[in-house]
Amino acid sequence: MPVDLETPTCDDSLIRQLWASAYQLPILSAADELGVFTLLEREPASVTELGEKLSLSARAAEALLASLSAMGLLARLQGKFHLTEVSRTFLLPAKPFYWGPILRMLCQLPLSDRALVETLRRDGAMAWGNGNVITDEWAQAALPDERAQAFTRAMHSHSFATAVGLAQRVELSGVERLLDVAGGSGCFSVALARRHEGVQFTVAELPPVCKVTRQYVAEHGLEGRIDVVELDMFRDAWPPGHDAIFFANILHDWDSARRQLLIQRSFEALPPGGRVLVYELLLSDAQDGPLTAALMSMNMVFLTPGKQLTGGELDELLRGCGFTDVSFTPAYAGYSLISARKPAAR
């Protein structure tokens, strides 16, 4: 006799959404590659019109536009599809906060359930691109020029908006010179320099990255405010004369020993009363979210030896290296700025 099935105590909407979410990033990247957002910036279009302009069938155009609209990237008004504020701000190649390079890079990752299971079981980062783990290349100061420059441009697209958001909220009173360690494209120093006119900046990076950094600094006309210094942050002496040291999305790349080394080196490089500033997505102290920080932590596990930290872990790290006056300030889009001070000389 067939067994009666009990009605589930909840429906499967969440699981269904997660199942379908596998398509979201590829849809976004494909739309960017097809030029959907640039086309609709010039002129809103119907399903039929966009299909004709992009040489897509009506079926394909309908699915693409419906998906982008449901994701909040398009809005349909009077039969035409328009850009939303989000797509107009972050998905047009000519705009300063364009996310295209990092979207394309993410779509190239060898991410699959099997690759993730293997990574979790061995607790080691996945090799990709040229077959190497990227943090191994950073740690050995052996990042090839082409790979370094492509990665730097991708991370610039990921970070520039949040850099500008931070610059509007951070307090730099008393800071005269700030050292931006592993500052990538220099986007944080650029944003901070434009907002805080009395501060001088130094971006310290590996030699192949510095080539790109200097280009971004020059594009913003800030050569007189931002120095670019070639540096292996684990081995080379840090440039002197800075009363603040800044790490943005850096500590999460490394294991606990290297995180401690970086914070200890910053303590030793600062004068008494100097500040260290850390900009990260923080996990809750209960380590149960928020979702963006949790997924970023999984990204770190997949690609690096690092992870996202909780506020408590950062507090312990900073105080363990001698810093005091540790404070946490919500900054932009889920990011927090953590500030601590080297005690004044007695």
Rank of each mutant, 00 (worst) to 15 (best):
A142D: 11
A142T: 12
A142H: 07
A142W: 07
L143N: 09
L143W: 11
P144T: 11
D145T: 13
E146H: 09
E146Y: 03
A148H: 10
Q149S: 08
A150P: 01
A150T: 12
A150E: 13
F151W: 06
F151L: 12
T152W: 02
T152F: 03
R153F: 02
A154F: 00
M155W: 01
S157C: 03
S157R: 00
H158L: 02
H158E: 13
H158T: 06
S159L: 00
F160Q: 05
T162V: 13
T162C: 00
A163F: 00
A163S: 15
A163G: 11
V164C: 13
G165P: 00
G165N: 03
G165K: 00
L166H: 08
L166D: 10
A167Q: 03
A167I: 01
Q168T: 09
R169P: 04
V170K: 01
V170H: 05
V170L: 12
V170F: 05
V170G: 08
E171I: 00
L172T: 08
L172G: 04
L172M: 01
L172Q: 05
S173I: 00
S173A: 11
G174K: 02
G174E: 05
G174Y: 04
V175K: 04
V175R: 03
E176R: 15
E176G: 14
R177K: 15
R177D: 10
R177G: 07
L178V: 07
L178P: 11
L179F: 15
L179R: 09
D180H: 06
D180I: 03
D180G: 06
V181F: 01
V181I: 15
V181K: 07
G183R: 01
G184A: 03
S185P: 09
G186C: 06
G186K: 04
C187Q: 12
F188E: 07
F188D: 15
S189P: 10
S189W: 09
V190D: 10
V190A: 02
A191Y: 06
L192T: 13
L192H: 10
L192M: 15
A193E: 13
R195Y: 05
R195Q: 15
R195D: 03
R195H: 14
H196K: 05
E197G: 05
E197C: 04
G198P: 09
G198I: 09
Q200W: 05
Q200V: 03
F201H: 07
F201Y: 15
F201C: 05
T202E: 07
T202M: 04
V203P: 09
V203F: 11
A204P: 11
E205M: 02
P207W: 04
P208N: 10
V209L: 07
V209P: 07
V209H: 08
V209E: 09
V209M: 04
C210H: 02
C210G: 08
C210L: 05
K211W: 03
K211N: 06
K211T: 14
